[in-house]
Structures are given as structure tokens and as C-alpha cells.
Nucleic acid binder design. Structure first.
Lengths: 100, 100
DNA sequence: AGTAAGCGTTAGTTGATACTTACGTAAGCG
DNA sequence: CGCTTACGTAAGTATCAACTAACGCTTACT
């Protein structure tokens, strides 16, 4: 879960997630949205996103099509939702386990 | 907003937010929950959290009491909520602005 | 077979960041 | 006034993360 949050910590990766949110896109297309950095840099960001499970890859000829892995996004979302709401209980649990 | 996400990217800072979620705590109390690192390290994390606006500080004698700034947390939460739901529209806006 | 397009990967560099150690400072207490 | 507690901060270090440049591997196309 820490990995997911760290992945989200980089603005370009957030942007990539948004780009492939509703429809899959090829790596070159994605890279074209970031004129200031190299294609290689984007490829590495895609690697991070892939390893964290937030995006999936599909081969199509010479191209690699990327799309959001909604299942993993949902996991992250659920964690954050519980983070905002369950902090009180989690705090209590933590205090109990620490005081033994 | 990038700052907030980057702040959340460090697990210890997440933990600190949870610790002061429901009641304010002194810096020493917070540091006591992290036996593996120095008090100084935690103090610096508190500095990051303070500068990002996620926590507030209050002086009480020689102690500094920290508490969650719920207003700023709400801002972050709202951004993430819109991130999950509005990505479709944002993608469209982006495409329009880029194709001109 | 030869060439080009599309990408990932490796190596190396630079800047950020998490940390420790040491120090400074303000508030309480004797 | 000295001493202690409770803290932030400055300096220095080591690790990590984002990037560029160069390379290599597929897949198509002729």
C-alpha cells in the first residue's frame, strides 16, 4: 500500500493514470503528452505504474497498450477511504499493541 | 496538491497523521511511537507535515502539541474523490487543449 | 534479408530526501 | 541563576528517485 501512495506522489504518474483512465493508449501516445521529458523517462514511469499494479499492459504488434487496472485503483481508494474514517479505531488498536 | 500527495508518500508521515487524528499529541509522544528512528527525524517529518498544512502546531509551555488540520485533509480528500470520478472529463479537457 | 517503428532496459548523473549527530533556544523548576 | 525538559534546526552523509543518452530487442513492411 505504501508503494501505491508513493506511486501517486509523482505528478506525471497521476497524469498518466488519468490519460489511460477511460481508454487504453500506446506508450508513444502517452509520451507525446509530456514534451518536456524523454520517452525513456515516461517508459520508466510506466514501469513503476506497472509494477505497482495500477496499470496493465497489452501487446498489439510492436505497440504496448496501457490501461488502468481498476481493481488495484479500487484497492487504493478503499484504503484511503478507511484512512479518513477509521483512524480513530486504528489508533486505538495501535495503542493496545504498543502498550503490551 | 502535489505536495500533499508527496507528503502522504512517506509511511511514517501517514502514521503520524493517524496518531494525531482524534487528539493532539506532543512531539515527544509522537516520536516515542517510532523506536527505530531518532526524535530529530520525527521532528523533521513534523516540519514537512506542518509546511504542507496537514497538521497544526500549538505551544503549551515547553511542549508543541500537534493535531490534524482537518480542513486541509478535506481538501486532499476532495481532490482524490474528484480524481477517481472526474478523470473522464479531465481527459477530454486535456485532449481538447492539446489538439489546438 | 534489410530497414524502420515502437518500446523496454541499462549505465551514469544529478538532485531530492530521510536520516544521525551536534547544537541552540525557550519554558519550567530548584 | 543554574539545570533540566522539550523541542527545532543546521550540517553532513547515504540512499533513492527522476532523468538523459545509448543500446538492444521485437514486430511489421518491402
Amino acid at each position: 500500500m505504501d508503494t501505491l501512495l508513493k506511486t501517486l506522489g509523482e505528478p506525471k504518474r497521476c497524469e498518466i493514470i488519468r490519460l489511460v483512465w477511460s481508454e487504453e493508449k500506446a506508450a508513444t501516445e502517452i509520451a507525446a503528452h509530456f514534451p518536456t521529458v524523454t520517452r525513456s523517462a515516461i517508459s520508466q514511469h510506466l514501469g513503476v505504474l506497472r509494477r505497482s499494479g495500477l496499470v496493465s499492459e497489452r501487446r498489439d504488434g510492436t505497440r504496448r497498450m496501457y490501461s488502468v487496472n481498476h481493481r488495484e485503483v479500487a484497492r487504493l481508494r478503499a484504503f484511503l477511504d478507511s484512512f479518513w474514517t477509521d483512524s480513530l479505531e486504528k489508533l486505538r488498536d495501535l495503542a493496545e499493541s504498543n502498550e503490551q
